[in-house]
Design a protein around this nucleic acid. Structure first.
Lengths: 337, 337
DNA sequence: ATTAGCACTCTCAGCCTAAGAGTGCTAATG
DNA sequence: CATTAGCACTCTTAGGCTGAGAGTGCTAAT
C-alpha cells in the first residue's frame, strides 16, 4: 500500500510527464504546493521507484512513469473523467451534420477522436455476427457479364462481377433475382445451401456466388480498419529517431496491429487500455492502445480506438473513446432498429 | 547545345546520384571509363553547373543534379525504357489472380507500383465523365427508413439512407423502383430533373434523392485517392530530418496533393512527370510526381502515379506507371465494353 | 584541348570542457 | 521518527576546437 502522499506525488509526476514529455524532478513536484520540501519528495520518489511505479532514464535525471505507474494511475488515481457536456454536444452535432451512412460515421468518428486526443485513431466498420441475406439484385453489364449485388440484413452492400456461362438478358436476370429473393431472403449461407430447389445452370451459378459471398463475409472477422491522424505521431518527441517511426508506420499500413488486438477487444465490454509492454507486438512497447467495442449486442459490432505513446492523455482518451463508442452504438441501433 | 561528352557526364552523374543519394565527384565519374582525366571532367562539370544542370551543396562537395538536370535526363538521356517482358507478365498475372472488381484493381495497382518503384503510390478510382443512371433499388429498413441504391452506368454503386415522409412498405418501394427504372434508366441528372411526370409525395422525395446523388457524383471531380507504400518514404535518407516528414505525411493524409495535381493530369494524355520545384505546393520542392491518366476516352478516367524524392528512379517509375495505366485501361474496357 | 599538381575550402567526426540539472546521502532539527 | 538543509557526486548537453578527408578550381605544362 502506498501512503496518500506517495499516491499524490505519483499522480503529479504522471500528469506532469504526460504534459511535457520530460522527466520530472523532485523540485517540480515540490512547487505544486505539497507543503513538504523537495528532499522529502526525493525520498518518496525513491520508494516509488523501488515499487516499480517510476523509473529513471539516468542517474541525474528526474523520474518518468513506468507501465505499472500508468496502470495504477488509470485504475486508482485518474478518477472517472467524463467528457464535458460541451464536447458531448459538439460531437453529437457533427454526427447529425453528416449523411446517415455507416461508412461516413466511422470516418467521422476517427477524425473526431484523432483530433481530440492528438493521436492516431483507428475504427473498423461494424460487422454482423451472422450475415443474412436481405435482398439480391442482378444487373446485366454485357451478354456474359453481370453485376451481383447483395444487400445484407444490416443494410450493408457486397458486390461481385460474374462471368456467366450462358448469355443472359436483363429480364432473365431480374426474374432470377426475384426467385432468389422470395426463396432466400432472411437466410444465412448454410440455410441457403441446404435448399432442395431445382435450378437452371445460370441460376445454379448465381446462387453459388451468393453463398460464397455470404461465407466470405462470415470468415473475414472484420473489415480493413480505417485510420486517421497519422500526422500526429510525427509531432511526438519520442519519435524524433525515425527508425522506430518506420516500424510504426509499417505496422499501421499493413494493419497487423488490429489483427492481433481485435479478437480481445471484441469479446470484452467497455473501454480497454493496453499500456506499453502489455501489448503483444514488441514494436508496441512504447505505445498505448485505448480501444472499445461498439455496436448492438448479438447483432453487429466494430471497434474504435486510439493509439499513441505511453504518455498519451489517458484522462482525455478514455472518456472520448467511451463516448464515441456509445454514440456509434446508438446510431447503429437507430438505423437497424 | 551540350557536347556529347558533357551529355554523357551528366547522365553518369544522374544515374550515380539516383543510386547512392550522395553528391558525385569528378573522380567517381572518371572511374566510369571515359578515357579522360578527372580534371577534364571537372571543367565540364563546371560548365554543366553554369548551364544549370547541376548544383553544388557546398564548395568542396561533388555535384548533384538540379531539376533542370533531371528534366533533360528524362527528355533526352534516359531513352524510352520499357518494362521487361518478365515484369509485364508478372503484373498481368497478378491482375488475373484478383476478383474482377474495380476497387480491387486500383488497390492492386497501387501495391505493385509502390513495391516496384519503392515509393508511395497513389491511385484514384475511375470516374465517369457523365454519370448516368442504370438501375435503382429500394430496400425497406424500417417503416420510415429506406436504403436507396443507385447503380450507375459503369457498374458503380452509390447508396443513401432515406428518412421517408410517409410510412412505406417494401412492396410499395419495389413498385416505385420499377417506375423509376423504366422511366429514367440511361439518363443523367439534368435529363431526369426535366421530366413532367406525376409523382406521389414519396415518389417525389425519392426521385429528388436520385437526382441529388447523381449531381454529387458529377460535382465531385474524383474519388478519394488510395495510397500505398508510405513506409518507403521513411527509408529515404533525405527524410531523416523529420519535420519535413511531418509535412509530407500530412500532405498525403489530407489528400491536398491530388487536388492540385489531378486537374492537369486528367486533361493530358501519357505519363506526366513533375519534378521538384515544378510542383505547385512548396512542400513538394523535394519531390517528383510521375503520374498518368487511365480509363476509356470520353467515358471514364482515373489517375495512377508514384511520388518520391526528386532522385526517384525515373527509368523504372515512368515505364511502370505507363504499363500499369495501360493495363488498367484494358481491364476497364473489357468490363464496360 | 587535356592534364598533373597543388593550394584552398568546407564538412565531419571526435574530443574536450564548462554549465546545469538532479540525485542520494548525511547530519541536524522539532 | 519524519523532515529538511546542505553538499558532493553523476550524468547530459551544448559549444568550441582540431585534424583528417574529400573535392574543387586554378595554373602551368604538354
Amino acid at each position: 500500500m502506498l501512503t496518500q502522499r506517495k499516491e499524490y506525488i505519483l499522480s503529479i509526476i504522471i500528469a506532469e510527464y504526460i504534459h511535457t514529455g520530460l522527466p520530472v524532478s523532485s523540485d517540480t513536484v515540490a512547487r505544486k504546493g505539497l507543503g513538504v520540501s523537495s528532499a522529502t519528495i526525493r525520498n518518496d520518489m525513491n520508494e516509488l521507484e523501488e515499487f516499480g511505479y517510476l523509473s529513471q532514464p539516468h542517474t541525474s535525471a528526474g523520474r518518468i512513469p513506468s507501465d505499472k505507474g500508468y496502470r495504477h494511475y488509470i485504475g486508482s488515481l485518474m478518477g472517472d473523467a467524463r467528457l464535458s457536456l460541451a464536447d458531448q454536444f459538439m460531437i453529437r452535432h457533427q454526427f447529425h451534420q453528416v449523411r446517415r451512412e455507416v461508412e461516413q460515421w466511422t470516418h467521422l468518428a476517427a477524425a473526431i477522436l484523432s483530433s481530440m486526443v492528438h493521436n492516431v485513431a483507428i475504427v473498423t466498420l461494424p460487422k454482423p455476427y451472422e450475415p443474412r441475406l436481405k435482398h439480391v439484385e442482378l444487373v446485366s453489364l454485357q451478354e456474359f457479364l453481370a453485376l451481383l449485388i447483395l444487400i445484407l440484413k444490416e443494410a450493408r452492400l457486397k458486390q461481385h462481377v460474374l462471368t456467366l456461362e450462358n448469355a443472359t438478358t436483363q429480364e432473365e436476370l431480374s426474374t432470377i433475382a426475384q426467385k432468389i429473393n422470395s426463396a432466400f431472403s432472411g437466410l444465412n449461407s448454410s440455410e441457403i445451401s441446404t435448399n432442395d430447389m431445382q435450378f437452371s445452370v445460370t441460376e445454379e451459378q448465381i446462387v453459388k456466388s451468393v453463398i460464397q459471398l455470404l461465407q466470405s463475409e462470415e470468415e473475414e472477422p472484420y473489415e480493413d480498419p480505417y485510420i486517421d491522424g497519422l500526422r500526429h505521431i510525427l509531432n511526438q518527441p519520442e519519435f524524433s529517431s525515425n527508425n522506430k517511426l518506420a516500424a510504426v508506420i509499417e505496422l499501421f499500413e499493413q494493419k497487423r496491429l488490429l489483427k492481433s488486438l481485435l479478437p480481445q477487444v471484441l469479446t470484452e465490454d467497455g473501454v480497454q487500455v493496453f499500456i506499453g509492454g502489455e501489448n503483444e507486438q514488441d514494436i508496441m512497447r512504447d505505445f498505448s492502445v485505448i480501444i472499445s467495442k461498439y455496436g448492438i449486442p448479438g447483432e453487429v459490432s466494430g471497434a474504435i480506438g486510439v493509439i499513441g505513446p505511453t504518455r498519451i492523455q489517458y484522462n482525455r482518451a478514455i472518456p472520448t473513446v467511451y463516448f464515441l463508442s456509445s454514440v456509434m452504438s446508438e446510431l447503429l441501433s437507430e438505423l437497424y432498429r
